[in-house]
């Protein structure tokens, strides 16, 4: 039945005996169509072609239902995460403690602590968090000295930007002092968005 177009990988559309494009008919079976001139209102060719498509859709519906009912196979998350945890992205190495100490923390670990501190604020979520030593050399030994933090946040509408920036700065500074022992010179807060409080878990469809 299919028209054979020889070598062409993608044969083009097919026309029903009534002149209707099958591709168009199937693409939007419920939508309004512009049938060819003189096309009958109740066209048996169109009806038959639509019935074929509907039968296929019926199989799809059943197939989806049977998949939904089947025991869900779980992905082995630990297999993936074991590999991931071997391929850490630590980022920069940052100085901990006094200038003469040989103590360090990797950027990813410090960022994790800062994000957690910011996430603990009501209706605030941290995104990107980058940390870098301020300037080089100077009075500090190589690589040591205070750091600058740049952190992106999204927050609920109950916040104003200035209050939010101050609260985030406080949270980061407190975490840096109390939880790490990292000298933070400045915290740049980038407010990405103020949003309506997410009902539910904030999961977004694709």
């Amino acid at each position: 039945m299919a028209v054979n177009h020889g070598a062409g990988e993608e044969p083009e559309d097919e026309l029903l005996p009534c002149g209707q494009s099958l591709m168009e008919l199937w693409e939007d079976p419920a939508g309004p169509r512009v049938p060819p001139a003189g096309h009958p209102e109740e066209c048996p060719h169109c009806a038959a072609a639509l019935a074929e498509l509907h039968a296929l859709e019926e199989f799809v519906t059943r197939s989806r239902a049977s998949e939904a009912a089947a025991p869900r196979r779980e992905l082995s998350v630990s297999t993936v995460m074991d590999i991931v945890r071997m391929e850490l992205r630590p980022g920069r190495t940052l100085p901990l403690g006094e200038p003469d100490e040989d103590a360090w923390i990797v950027e990813a670990a410090a960022a994790k602590v800062f994000r957690a501190a910011v996430d603990a604020l009501p209706e605030v979520t941290a995104g990107s968090c980058r940390i870098a030593p301020v300037g080089a050399g100077g009075r500090h030994p190589a690589g040591r000295g205070p750091v600058r933090v740049r952190i992106e946040v999204v927050a609920g509408m109950t916040w104003t930007v200035p209050r939010l920036a101050e609260a985030v700065r406080d949270a980061v500074a407190r975490a840096a002092g109390e939880r790490l022992g990292l000298e933070v010179l400045a915290v740049d807060v980038v407010v990405m968005d103020l949003v309506e409080p997410a009902g539910g878990n904030g999961r977004t469809p694709w």
Partner: peptide, 10 residues
């Protein structure tokens, strides 16, 4: 003995 300590995770 010189000891360098790096915190890689918290």
């Amino acid at each position: 003995v010189a000891v360098r300590v790096t915190v890689t995770d918290v």
